[in-house]
């Protein structure tokens, strides 16, 4: 179900916790699985659960509780933009509007070519850098002017 490399990464996470507490690695394991698969289909969640020796429903509870897990397919690049108040005061909403216009999609939609999905995010803890984007959950982009958004979209286009 998962590559050898992913399993090795999960094993490294398991080693952080007491031997009888493998379930503690659930969040990392689901993250690692999502990076490999692009999103988390039910059978992947079930596989992670059995790998960690926890009930499938418990792993599903984790996957559905934390909002960076994608339980439905997303585009090749997921862009999350923070529109919370501190960001909105420095252009977060305008940056989101610009992204919508450039990509021709609304929040929670994917471009027809499957390249981009746009999400509205909650506080990322980087309000001083507003506007802020998160690319594919793990890469944060600060001080997003329209020019920088153009640049990032162009870079992602080829990836």
């Amino acid at each position: 179900m998962l590559s050898q490399e992913s399993l090795q990464q999960i094993d490294r996470e398991i080693a952080k916790y007491p031997p009888e507490q493998k379930q503690s690695a659930a969040m990392s394991a689901l993250r690692i699985a999502q990076v490999e698969k692009g999103w988390l289909p039910k059978e992947v969640i079930e596989f992670v659960a059995s790998y960690l020796g926890m009930p499938a429903i418990a792993a599903y509870e984790v996957a559905s509780f934390y909002n960076m897990y994608d339980l439905e397919p997303v585009g090749r690049h997921k862009i999350t933009v923070c529109t919370n108040l501190p960001c909105a005061l420095s252009g977060g909403v305008h940056a989101a509007d610009y992204l919508k216009e450039k990509l021709g999609i609304d929040f929670n939609e994917t471009t027809p070519d499957g390249k981009f999905t746009l999400k509205e995010g909650e506080c990322m803890g980087a309000c001083g850098d507003a506007p802020v984007l998160l690319v594919n959950n793990h890469h944060m982009c600060s001080w997003m002017t329209k020019e920088k958004i153009d640049q990032i979209l162009a870079e992602l286009e080829d990836k």
Partner: peptide, 21 residues
């Protein structure tokens, strides 16, 4: 974490380290 403000609450944080919601 992976996107849940509530985990900043100390007991929610402990639940989360235990691999739960």
């Amino acid at each position: 974490g992976y996107g849940a403000y509530i985990c900043g609450e100390e007991t929610a944080l402990l639940e989360s380290i235990e691999g739960k919601k």
